[in-house]
Simulated scan of single mutants.
Amino acid sequence: MARRDVEEAVEKLLEPGLEREGLELVDVEYVRERNWILRIYIDKEGGVDLNDCQTVSEKAGMLLDEADLIPDNYMLEVSSPGLDRVLKKDKDFIRYTGEDVDVKLFAPLEGKKGVKSFTAKLLGLAEDGALFLKTEEGEISLSRDKISQVRLHFSF
């Protein structure tokens, strides 16, 4: 099973139960570092704590063992997405409209030689999925296929 297929299958398996518990499934990553790692990022109003992560880890581990979705040996990690969380889904972009974000691009912006990352205010999401952003130079619209990553901007 391909990496993305595993992530989608795990998301479909776990999301309903997490929602019943008042938790949001923020993201699922299945990556090979030294070994295969299945990372589940959860959140809730007011933030998650260690007990939330432990409970989800135990319940998810049992569900994943029963479903037998992943043929490889892997380590399961459950954590909070953090203050500088990655925004991936439409609901993330809608929820964080008005917030500052750090944007990384696959290639420099047209007319901006070498600029592949910048901080902007997230103004919203277009129907076609493009992001509306306000930069120092003005407002821009960027299609998601040009964007490598969007994270909430965190400053001290």
Rank of each mutant, 00 (worst) to 15 (best):
A2C: 05
R3A: 04
R3T: 09
R4C: 02
R4Y: 14
E8P: 00
E8W: 14
V10K: 00
E11G: 07
K12V: 11
P16L: 09
R20N: 13
R20I: 13
E21D: 11
E21T: 15
G22A: 02
E24K: 07
V26W: 13
V28W: 12
E29V: 06
Y30C: 06
R32A: 08
R34F: 12
I37A: 03
Y41G: 00
D43S: 05
D43H: 04
L50N: 05
N51F: 15
V56R: 13
S57Q: 03
E58L: 13
K59I: 15
M62K: 15
L63S: 02
E66P: 01
A67T: 02
D68F: 08
L69P: 05
I70C: 03
D72H: 12
S79E: 13
S80M: 08
P81K: 08
L83A: 13
D84Y: 04
V86A: 01
Y96Q: 02
L105W: 09
F106S: 09
A107I: 14
L109W: 14
K113P: 04
K113M: 06
G114K: 01
F118S: 04
A120D: 11
A120T: 15
L123S: 10
L123E: 00
G124C: 02
L125Y: 06
G129N: 10
L131N: 10
F132C: 00
E139C: 02
Q149L: 10
V150N: 01
